[in-house]
């Protein structure tokens, strides 16, 4: 089976400081991988390199494109990469306002990605937007409201709808439930789980919340000081961590 994403030896430094280094892995279709680690461990830098928001100093991020097979997205031209990030890729930001247009209605936010790939039929765009709002449990009556009138949890769900409307194959998520209160988190996690299953999505989720990865991720990568210290099945890494740092990380979680 061809991996959907094949990452080879990614390195990103900030001057003499290492952002992340020696990162390689393959992600297969339908797999959800979590990246955990403390603040400053390099997980967000890595995600930015993978999603094309940062240019790595070295290494390759090969993506299995629909028409040409595995292509290194680091070497891709910018238009191609931007096209990819509007179609086959999606990026869910921690703060919904980074991923939404706050001055545009909910329907317009969802519709933008469709219009960006050439949809020019208002009625179709709108009905797809409404359909997606319903899938993320936002009432159709809110379709013309601006996201600034939404609660934090709704904004995050709207951001997810906006990202998934073009049927991407790979979703990057940066702390998707960070900043939401616990009851809202649970609802969002359940929603994400259902969408991942129904759409056969592959995803890379960066988080410091081990409960989030336990529920969403098939496999886990533990990072410390810019390096990957342990990888494996999510429950294996969490229940039987091998590396010193993973053990510390797991044992540091407060049990409720």
């Amino acid at each position: 089976m061809t991996p959907l994403l094949s990452v080879k030896d990614i390195r990103k430094t900030y001057g003499s400081h290492i952002g992340c280094t020696d990162v390689s892995f393959d992600l297969y279709p339908g797999e959800v991988m979590g990246i955990v680690g403390e603040s400053g461990s390099g997980k967000s830098t890595l995600l930015s390199c993978l999603a094309g928001h940062l240019e790595p100093d070295q290494g390759a991020v090969n993506f299995d494109t629909r028409d040409r097979g595995l292509i290194d997205t680091v070497q891709m031209s910018e238009p191609e990469r931007r096209m990819l990030s509007r179609t086959d890729w999606a990026f869910v930001h921690q703060h919904a306002r980074d991923g939404l247009r706050m001055g545009v209605s909910a329907g317009g936010n969802v519709g933008e990605r469709l219009m960006a790939v050439g949809d020019r039929h208002y009625g179709d765009i709108r009905s797809k937007a409404v359909d997606w709002l319903e899938r993320v449990e936002i009432s159709e009556t809110r379709v013309d409201d601006r996201p600034s009138t939404f609660s934090g949890g709704m904004q995050q769900r709207l951001q997810i709808a906006r990202n998934l409307v073009t049927g991407p194959r790979l979703v990057f998520m940066d702390e998707p439930t960070g900043g939401l209160d616990v009851s809202v988190q649970a609802r969002l996690l359940d929603l994400l789980r259902g969408l991942v299953r129904d759409m056969g999505l592959s995803a890379i989720i960066v988080t410091h919340d081990l409960a989030v990865v336990r529920l969403l991720a098939d496999r886990l990568m533990v990072m410390k000081s810019g390096r990957v210290v342990e990888t494996g099945l999510t429950d294996q890494v969490l229940d039987d961590p091998q590396h010193e740092y993973s053990q510390l990380l797991v044992s540091s979680v407060l049990q409720v």
Binding site: L233, Q236, D239
Partner: peptide, 8 residues
């Protein structure tokens, strides 16, 4: 748990 892959 080992058989299930939960433990290494």
């Amino acid at each position: 748990r080992m058989i299930y892959g939960n433990y290494s």
